[in-house]
Design a protein around this nucleic acid. Structure first.
Length: 298
DNA sequence: CGTGTTTGACCAGCGC
DNA sequence: GCGCTGGTCAAACACG
């Protein structure tokens, strides 16, 4: 990484956003969001739930993902390859190969199998900031922590999580901003190849009854923040679902939310363009149920 | 006992 | 080539 900090990688497409989208991104790390959480439905002026449900019936949720992954990925792990067109050999593949081929070694650190994953080969990333005192916000998915590292020039460690769903290679990094400890920066890499366990409890053997909020542990504001995060993630995943190629090939002018917003530079891999989503909004039903359920997963 | 966390070691990329 | 740093592995451990 050289001298570049984690925040240097933190990019959002900006110029393509509508005013409401820009405002939402601004609010993610702002006092406004913290003090008065706002639904992205309002900010983005999403269509009504009824409209979304109708559209969703006409356009099943994961069909695009399944088709793409089968075609692109063959016998391997059917996940993030569906996102990146060519060279995204995902982390899960690497992980599983690693486990298979290193079992022989009694030496704790045997040579790993050829590690061909370079940073440029990884899946696209999506990051956002949240002003919260909770380090690991619940986004509806189940995560397993696989590492923690001290970060240069930051008193706060960075935690590494991996989605526990089999064959799902999504990674997540969580760290606090060194400049503002109240801000948690979360970065997702690749996208899930399965539905959210919370939003679709029946598919995951989870009780279909709405689980209660952790009202005793979380404030209302924190609960709303979690809901907003879940909504944002689902939007992002739906974006992948709709058009992986468009995403991975996109080239947009971006900015780092942690810098002054007029700090503009080029970025190819990380971009965020909700506008695109809403042009094809048949896949938003997750958001509805996730609003009602923000329980943690364990 | 299954699941998740901790933590030290290892590896790769990058800058000098 | 060397050292620094970020990312990952996996044994040991904790917990319900």
């Amino acid at each position: 990484m050289g001298n570049s900090t984690f925040l240097d990688e933190f990019r959002f497409s900006f110029e393509t956003l509508s005013d409401g989208e820009k405002r939402f991104l601004d609010m993610l790390g702002s006092e406004e969001m913290y003090n008065q959480p706002t639904s992205i439905y309002d900010l983005f002026q999403l269509p009504s739930v009824e409209v979304l449900q109708q559209q969703q019936q006409q356009q099943p949720l994961v069909s695009a993902v399944a088709e793409t992954s089968e075609v692109v990925n063959d016998a391997e792990t059917p996940n993030s390859s569906s996102i990146c067109t060519s060279s995204t050999h995902d982390a899960v593949k690497d992980d599983q190969q690693s486990k298979r081929s290193t079992h022989v070694g009694k030496n704790k650190k045997m040579l790993k199998p050829e590690k061909k994953i370079t940073k440029k080969q990884r899946g696209p990333r999506f990051a956002f900031m949240t002003k919260t005192d909770i380090d690991h916000l619940d986004d509806g998915y189940r995560w397993r922590k696989y590492g923690q590292k001290a970060v240069k020039n930051s008193p706060f460690p960075r935690s590494y999580y991996r989605c526990t769903s089999p064959s799902c290679g999504v990674l997540k990094r969580v760290e606090r901003s060194s400049t503002d400890p109240s801000i948690v920066v979360t970065t997702y890499e690749s996208n899930h190849n399965h539905l959210c366990p919370v939003a679709h409890p029946g598919l995951y053997g989870i009780s279909p009854e709405p689980r209660p909020f952790r009202g005793d542990a979380l404030s209302t504001q924190q609960q709303l923040q979690q809901q907003n995060i879940q909504q944002l993630l689902q939007l992002q995943q739906q974006r992948y679902t709709i058009s992986p190629a468009t995403f991975s090939n996109s080239r947009a002018t971006s900015y780092s939310p942690l810098d002054v917003p007029n700090h503009v530079f080029e970025e190819t891999q990380l971009s965020f363009s909700p506008s695109f989503l809403f042009r094809d909004q048949g896949l938003l039903e997750d958001m509805v149920s996730s609003q009602m359920q923000s329980e943690e997963k364990k």
